[in-house]
């Protein structure tokens, strides 16, 4: 691994850790098994960050969307749509790669030196649409109609969200005896989902992000035109495929610039021997900044 690649990777890891601490910095909550109840919770954070995490200082955008869809009288959830458009138009899936706490958890599990690493699951071409299915069935339809009879339940949070189990349930149940006594079959189910995804993360790169995360599905839609882009200079490319090998989800350089699967981790940039890939702004490619200076 070149020094530029190492520097970029470390920078991303540092930002991921800092942002996770920044958005989950309510230490009192962890110590007492309670959650933050201040005014910052009017605002949503960009990544998947359970608002029942004892440390969470903001709201989860997906939880917020479901809370709005769960209301008695249906209204278009403009507040959360605004959050998606705002964050998505500027950053796209850069949020997944650099700012999502559960993305960080999966990245850390993938570093465990067990199993032979794989980028994708078999049948990836079909399975990658799972996140859109989750978005439609669990987040939208599920929250509106299916579960609990015209359903006042956030179906995605209730039946699937591993971030809620990892950041919310485990620390809360550890610190709160009363809640611990109420845990039953549903907690067991969510524990199995979390454990399955974490074990899978050791072998496959970010399985939840690639196949199940509805937030990734939403931000992926913005990847084509978001302000933060990875620009590929086709005319300079020597087709050596070094970037494709370095890409944790196996995207070709042509796909990297606009694919909804690209999480903008930037590993392809220092891997390129002729430096034809770089982070850029959609407005003007001359505003590019060097990510591989150390090389």
């Amino acid at each position: 691994m070149g020094s530029g690649e190492k520097m970029g990777k470390n920078l991303r890891l540092k930002i991921q850790i800092l942002f996770t601490i920044f958005t989950n910095g309510y230490v009192y909550g962890f110590l007492n098994g309670k959650i933050y109840q201040g005014k910052l919770k009017y605002a949503c954070v960009p990544g998947l960050n359970c608002y029942s995490c004892p440390g969470a200082v903001g709201s989860c955008p997906l939880g917020a969307l479901q809370a709005l869809l769960n209301q008695r009288n249906f209204q278009v959830p403009f507040g959360v749509l605004g959050v998606f458009f705002l964050f998505g138009s500027i950053l796209g899936r850069f949020i997944c790669g650099w700012l999502c706490p559960f993305g960080l958890v999966q990245d850390l599990f993938h570093k465990i030196p067990l199993f032979r690493k794989r980028k994708r699951l078999p049948f990836h071409a079909v399975l990658k649409y799972g996140k859109y299915l989750t978005l439609v069935l669990l987040v939208c339809v599920g929250s509106l109609f299916l579960f609990g009879g015209f359903a006042k339940a956030p179906a995605f949070c209730k039946y699937l969200c591993p971030s809620g189990t990892f950041f919310g349930a485990i620390p809360l149940l550890t610190g709160n005896q009363m809640l611990r006594s109420q845990a039953g079959g549903l907690f067991l189910w969510k524990g199995v989902v979390l454990l399955g995804l974490l074990v899978l993360s050791v072998k496959i790169y970010r399985p939840f992000c690639q196949y199940l995360c509805p937030l990734g599905a939403i931000y992926g839609w913005f990847n084509r035109f978001s302000l933060v882009q990875i620009h590929w200079e086709e005319e300079r490319c020597i087709a050596c495929k070094a970037c494709e090998k370095a890409c944790p989800v196996g995207l070709s350089p042509k796909e990297i610039s606009h694919s909804p699967e690209c999480i903008r981790c930037g590993r392809c940039i220092p891997a390129c021997p002729v430096k034809c890939l770089h982070f850029s702004q959609a407005v003007d490619n001359s505003c590019k900044f060097e990510y591989n200076k150390g090389k």
């Binding site: 005014k39 403009f78 189910w189």
Partner: peptide, 25 residues
């Protein structure tokens, strides 16, 4: 538009209570 129709109040109310569904209870 969201602020005008009170979306953030709904989000706040949900976010300051422990979400039992989220934690599997």
């Amino acid at each position: 538009l969201g602020a005008a129709q009170g979306d953030f109040g709904v989000i706040f109310k949900k976010a300051v209570m422990i979400c039992l569904e989220c934690i599997g209870i």
